[in-house]
Amino acid sequence: MLAFAVRRFLTAIVSVLLASLVVFSAIVAIPGDPAEIILGLNSSQEARAALRTKLGLDVPAPRRYVAWLGGVLRGDFGESLNYQQPVAKLIGGRLKVSVPLSLGAALIATLLAIPLGILAAVRRGTFVDPLVVALSQLGAAIPGFWLGLIFILYFAVELRLFPAGGFTPFATDPAKWLKSLVLPMLALGLGQAAVMVRMTRAAMLEVLNQDFVRTARAKGLGRRSVVLKHALRNAMVTIITILGLSLTNVFIGSIVIEQVFALPGMGRLAITAIGTRDFPLLQGEILVYAATIVFLGFLVDLSYGLLDPRIRYS
């Protein structure tokens, strides 16, 4: 298990390094002079030369990559051109919005999807199963950002229960903080729940059809005990995978949702960075997103071995 964990960790590191190379090369590949793109055609020669030096463009790309990567490892992502602040500090501040939003959405999705998925699997052959499946199919087809707009329309504009957008920091007012995040969390979480329901259902059905479940039933155990103690515990491995996947999905989905609800998170920062051609900021942002995805994948793989001792890694 330990050998597997170490090996899997090393592949994750390689993936992040390759991802960093992709992010870096993309910015290097920009056709034309980045300084001219950033400052505009009317900028002076001197200003462009100064910016080129600031961006390190007079250094060959491979050396620049090594320097950038070295900085990233020390937590220094460079300085944002637009905000004149360290990129790491900007991202850190925005994570205070994006992380609670993503975790809340994932929590909503899990609390809805796992019971519904189990219910559908256990009630197979009754009307409950096709109903849950149909609802999840419909739910998965609804774009989260459109659901967000509908929520704003109904809960904010019509009923005035929640703000239509904007963000209150937790430190300022915890109740308002929660209120500003409820609708975005729901918009992001419900679609994810729809995807997770079908996966949970499939995982449960597979376990419910196995011999040990039949044995448990045959020896007279109650339905509740069979489902919760025998089946669910064995379906857990698949469900954890689904959970890891959904965390990735909501984290990426938050980019669009933040735009709908005007939340000052990572996603909104990235969209602004594109508008202002803030390359150092964008590089840092995209790398943080990509590395998070790789890391979540690593955690999921690791949990396999912990949850199911039968899984042996060669």
């Binding site: 992709v22 669009v256 964008l282």
Partner: peptide
């Protein structure tokens, strides 16, 4: 590695370039 770049992320990267 490609798994680490979902459509939106890839679009952000391309939009920068």
């Amino acid at each position: 590695v490609a798994y680490a770049f979902p459509a939106i992320l890839m679009a952000l990267l391309l939009a920068a370039v």
